[in-house]
Amino acid sequence: MRFKNVFSIIGPSMVGPSSSHTAGAVRIGRVARQLLGSQPETAKMTLFGSFAETYWGHGTDLALTAGLMDYETDDQRIPQADVLAEEAGMTLEWVQGRGNGPHPNSVKILLTGGGRTAEIVAASIGGGTIAVYSLNGFDVQITGEYPTLAVKHSDSQGVLANMTALLSRDGYNIGYMDVDRKGRSGDAMTVFELDSAPEESTIQAIRKLPHIKEVTMIDLTKRS
């Protein structure tokens, strides 16, 4: 069964006009913003395929910007997101990508802010559902459907076992996980999609594990 929930038929609550080009785009923007961990100062969006072709009429640009402001899919400020982002001090740059990208509706987002950078590549695959293909250059896939922990660490023996043991100890079930490393003993990224959002104490405990460099929480299920 591809659909398991009555609210995937009646819903989502969203600002129009297109679940894929608008609602999905808001969610992609939110993933990027949460990966950065603060409001972006600059944002460069490279649009591919149908996103590049029809973004303007569908308000995909406004929707992505709204996501960068951490708005939800039904936030009525979405149509004014460009003005509000500018007022908030965000500089936006739009680029038309070459080729098709990883999916007909895809975007690469590069953010800077608070002395940090964040980069994601993601696509809107229909009905507001998204697929994120990479986080900060690591090829890890997430959906944004679940509270997600993104952990940057060094590629060392036992890191994964330590993290999964800790999540298990604190009572969190892992629905999906994905790992990518730059090379043997280099930097690596692991993402965990969890059935429930972890408490801050659990996140802190993971930060204190050996070889952990950065722990980021991405949670689109939480009303902002």
Binding site: I9, I10, G11, P12, S13, M14, V15, G16, P17, S18, S19, T22, A23, G59, L62, D74, Q76, I78, P79, G127, G128
Partner: peptide, 12 residues
């Protein structure tokens, strides 16, 4: 016009 709706089953 980018107003708020419920997708039933889609926005279209």
């Amino acid at each position: 016009s980018m107003g708020r709706i419920i997708a039933t089953p889609t926005a279209g």
